[in-house]
Write a protein that binds this DNA or RNA. Sequence first.
DNA 1: AAATAAAGTTAAACTAGATTAACTTTTATT
DNA 2: AATAAAAGTTAATCTAGTTTAACTTTATTT
Lengths: 196, 196
Amino acid sequence: MNSQKVQPLLDYIRKHVTLTKEEEDVLLSHVTFRKYLKGQYIVQQGDVCKYECYVLSGCTKTFYLDDEGQEHILMFSIEDWWAADMGSFITQTPANFNVQCLENTELVMFPYETIEELYAKVPKLERFFRQIIEKAFVASQKRIVRNFSLTAKEQYIYFREQYPEIEQRIPQYMIASYLGITKEFLSKIKSQLALE
Amino acid sequence: MNSQKVQPLLDYIRKHVTLTKEEEDVLLSHVTFRKYLKGQYIVQQGDVCKYECYVLSGCTKTFYLDDEGQEHILMFSIEDWWAADMGSFITQTPANFNVQCLENTELVMFPYETIEELYAKVPKLERFFRQIIEKAFVASQKRIVRNFSLTAKEQYIYFREQYPEIEQRIPQYMIASYLGITKEFLSKIKSQLALE
DNA sequence: AAATAAAGTTAAACTAGATTAACTTTTATT
DNA sequence: AATAAAAGTTAATCTAGTTTAACTTTATTT
């Protein structure tokens, strides 16, 4: 496994736990590097999600299709973020979500079959993943809070401030989908903001 | 520490990991048992959340007050659930949420100061908490999905089916708050459902 | 048992955001 | 460069859910 490419992951892990050289090697022997092209799916609704993916470069969207075939985007993942259907991964049951690449994307993939083994060999990584998931949970709760108490306009302003890099890279109708509003209404919000 | 009272926690943990007698003892030496009365606060907005709490009996609500002083309920916790402001707990910064008892409530409390030490002594508990939080994260994502794709009526029906025990124990206006709608509109939904 | 507070209901007027549909601008394809 | 497809805009109409306010029922206190 090419440890050069994976360096950003090691740097990222270092912010949470300190691995020895040996532990890093064990980690690298348990993960795979992979490139996807724009438009390709990492996970598809109905398949079992086999990997937790760390994004080295590129961008993905995690979404589902409702009964009317409408797409709802739950999250975007760019560099230093994670992508997976966590519910499917931990239970190894069919995914409710799709993860699709919006750009050519490079990933480090942690396979389900050996992740428990990896935790056993390098307990610090169990700590690392616990901390990652704690943060993801808190972020998810914050999103619920925003849904509760902000108007669509306020949510858009928040998104723009929080993720300025993402807004540049992604078509507006996907941002509308992420915010839970129609593209027409987001358009209206933007024209209102332009006048203010 | 009275291990009698804490038995449900040990049973609950056993569903995830298998502890030796010694490990159970270490666990028990790191937690405290506590009773709260109906109406009392376990965590208050602005305070730092010092404990992860496992509910042995009773019921709590986790909520926040928005700028207009409106209460928004994020979750109810009954027997075998957890209660805390996770964001405050992991970062040890002031809580955004309140946790208040809706009934007299018995808890097992895991203090922040010694929880890392507990993980170090009993690594299986790190695994246990990782799994708990994974599930909490998935549940939180599912709630976002419901917000996206269900009408208020559908969300109420879902709540009723999913948590029949909770609905009996909690005033209707709090269920409305949990669903993110007004008590008046929930009232309307209920009268519609009664006619169907 | 009476008095009071808390919880729940009903209905009219209102609003944030959806829907539909026609149109414009930008991007990709040949 | 021309054409087609994708993305974004504007405006009219519609609807799920809010707000306000008056009222009823159920709990709690004395």
